[in-house]
Design a protein around this nucleic acid. Structure first.
Length: 259
DNA sequence: ATGGCAATGTTTCATTGA
């Protein structure tokens, strides 16, 4: 099973690129973030023609998530939002596919340390911990993936000194990420040897991408049982190149079939 | 091996993102 997370920064704008990418990589399950698309306007037909059934939880302008499931697989027990955390912002959609509980999240950005949005981010992360704890108790095979808007370690930041204490890399955010790992989740990317300075997001401004001034903030976290079956995890930097890219690149994890 | 913000709607600027 090939699992993907990708913040597309507007599904409407990125749909042609997404469909091209799906044709090349043929993932089984894709978690999208920042679709910025109301469910009534979700491009189900185009994605179905590309071989995917979509489950969407969106809103206009901001946020919005979706799960794409390749033909031949099906999604059951679709749940939207974080249990116990009422929220107008549409940031979470979960489903079970081929026995794997997939929780796709667009974690709040936080704007700046100390802001109201930062407090909301930390509260959201705590609610996510509670939801993940329950989900891990119910599902041996679980993947928590998405745009987590947290760079967990200095090596996930192009210039840790510059980012020290800043939003996306502040200690409380990194502690929240660490709390998810403490529940028994494993960062799939770090299970494997990786090229140094591998990131998943680069600012559109100031030549950040060609200079590789990025952050690794998009993640695939796996339950220990699922992590043992994970055979590869990589970030597709190529998807950040060319005309009208998202500012995020997709993260791809390969899961071996159960022996 | 890449390109100097992008997307949206409140639209000709303001807001948000990260």
């Amino acid at each position: 099973m090939k699992l993907v997370t990708w913040n597309v920064n507007s599904l409407n704008v990125r749909l042609p690129r997404l469909i091209d990418w799906l044709a090349v990589h043929a993932p089984d399950v894709v978690g999208l973030q920042e679709t910025k698309t109301e469910d009534a306007r979700f491009p189900h037909d185009a994605l179905r023609q590309a071989g995917y059934v979509a489950h969407a939880f969106g809103q206009r302008t901001y946020n919005g998530v979706a799960l794409l499931v390749r033909d031949g697989l099906s999604a059951t027990d679709v749940v939207t939002g974080l249990p116990g955390f009422p929220d107008e912002q549409k940031r979470v959609i979960a489903a079970t596919v081929a026995g794997v509980r997939v929780i796709n999240a667009y974690v709040p950005n936080g704007q700046s340390v100390g802001s109201d949005k930062y407090a909301y981010k930390l509260a959201w992360c705590q609610a996510a911990s509670a939801a993940l704890s329950d989900a891990l108790a119910a599902h041996r095979d679980l993947a928590f993936l998405g745009d987590m808007n947290i760079a967990p370690e200095p090596r996930d930041v192009h210039d840790p000194a510059l980012w020290d204490g800043q939003v996306l890399f502040s200690e409380p955010e990194r502690a929240a990420f660490g709390a998810w790992l403490s529940l028994g989740l494993v960062d799939a990317f770090r299970r494997f040897e990786q090229p140094p300075n591998t990131f998943s997001w680069w600012d559109y401004r100031m030549l950040a991408f060609p200079k590789n001034r990025g952050l690794r903030i998009d993640h695939i976290l796996l339950s220990t049982a699922l992590a043992e079956r994970c055979t590869a995890c990589r970030i597709d930097r190529n998807a950040r190149k060319g005309d009208k890219p998202s500012d995020h690149a997709p993260v791809v994890a390969e899961i071996a079939d159960r022996a």
